[in-house]
Design a protein around this nucleic acid. Structure first.
Lengths: 200, 200
DNA sequence: CGTCTATTTGAATGTACTCAAAAGCGGTGG
DNA sequence: CCACCGCTTTTGAGTACATTCAAATAGACG
């Protein structure tokens, strides 16, 4: 491969490079196991009952991960934009059917790594154990914080906090989706925003 | 060290052994960086403003990790019993002051690994990257599920679900602590239990 | 046995939801 | 380019879930 051919890998390699430094042959092998896929807005990447035996890197665009409860209500557990990793980790680990839907919110390009290839990658390039260890560690820290906020914050506090910490995402998702992420109804989030704008 | 001297390390070594196999010299080094501490019930292991530059393995007993909000209310984000790992991961990663209290619920023995020693361990015994990668990965999967349940379940569903999946812990913590973990008031949890017992 | 904390009970209140309808907005086809 | 359709957002009334506050009861521990 000449340098030119790496351009489509630039973004993900930059992501890896945050935590581990790869040499040329390691880069080559890593790139060789990646699969690119493009989706239009509102397409499903994953749905329950499929096995999610891969992890997903968002190269561009925006997706939501959600479940649908027995009343047909959607509950979004995560938004992921370009540069974020996602998937259905429980399905990935257990080889059981997924419990989450993953759906694009914008036209998106994703990169997937299959579990099988990733295990080979771990063996061949040990540094990736460190990379994913760091990735999961950081992700875990932010999920712990989110749980703490879920049990201690009011809906208004959760909304203000999300807005403050994720201004980029707040602009890109609908209010309905944001309500679902915060765990409130769209009607109530609308009321909250009105109250807040009246205050100021 | 003769075999006898390893006995106090048995439980944590068994824990490590779930994911990686160590040889004798790796075991020796690992054990050499561990620190044992014992606490009586209701003692604080960690409090906000201290730097949590270590991770904690619960060798015996039970602890709770919680924050206290500006109204003085306690919010428990995790219970950990023997065989579980805990800490204040955000403080650990960022080297900033902890945001969590960690307090024993029973007389407990804990093992700590300092961040500094752990980094040396990663370099010396690469397998530990794999061990902690797996540990964080599994922990992340369960935290994602918990977030999903927090935003989609009613208090009653959260309670029944906790009881079903953590019968061992439910018996060991007070109802007040469980209420705090579920994100409801102790009074309301008491009411819920009464309603449920009337149903059956 | 007495003290301290946890749990239960009940009444009043507040937060967030449900249902319904209107208004706004974006995409699509004529 | 405009008109229409479907979906999102807003608004409001009525309701349900969960909290607050207060007081009584039960349990744990020295």
């Amino acid at each position: 491969m000449n340098r030119q051919n790496y351009s489509k890998y630039d973004f993900i390699l930059k992501n890896i490079n945050r935590h581990v430094k790869l040499n040329r042959s390691e880069i080559d092998f890593f790139c060789s196991i990646l699969e690119f896929k493009t989706y239009k807005k509102k397409e499903l990447i994953l749905m329950p009952n499929k096995i999610a035996d891969y992890e997903i890197f968002i190269n561009s665009g925006c997706v939501k991960c959600y479940t649908i409860d027995n009343k047909g209500v959607e509950h979004i557990s995560l938004f992921a934009i370009e540069g974020w990793w996602t998937g259905d980790l429980y399905s990935y680990i257990s080889d059981k059917p997924a419990t989450f839907f993953i759906e694009t919110i914008e036209d998106s390009e994703i990169i997937t790594i299959s579990k099988q290839q990733k295990e080979i990658l771990y063996k061949k390039v040990l540094k990736f154990e460190r990379f994913f260890r760091t990735l999961y560690q950081n992700s875990l820290a932010s999920h712990i914080r989110r749980i703490n906020q879920n049990i201690s914050f009011s809906a208004e506090e959760k909304y203000l906090n999300f807005k403050k910490n994720n201004p980029a995402i707040e602009k890109r998702v609908s209010q309905k989706n944001l309500a679902s992420y915060l765990g409130v109804t769209p009607e109530f989030l609308s009321l909250l925003k009105k109250r807040l704008s009246n205050k100021s």
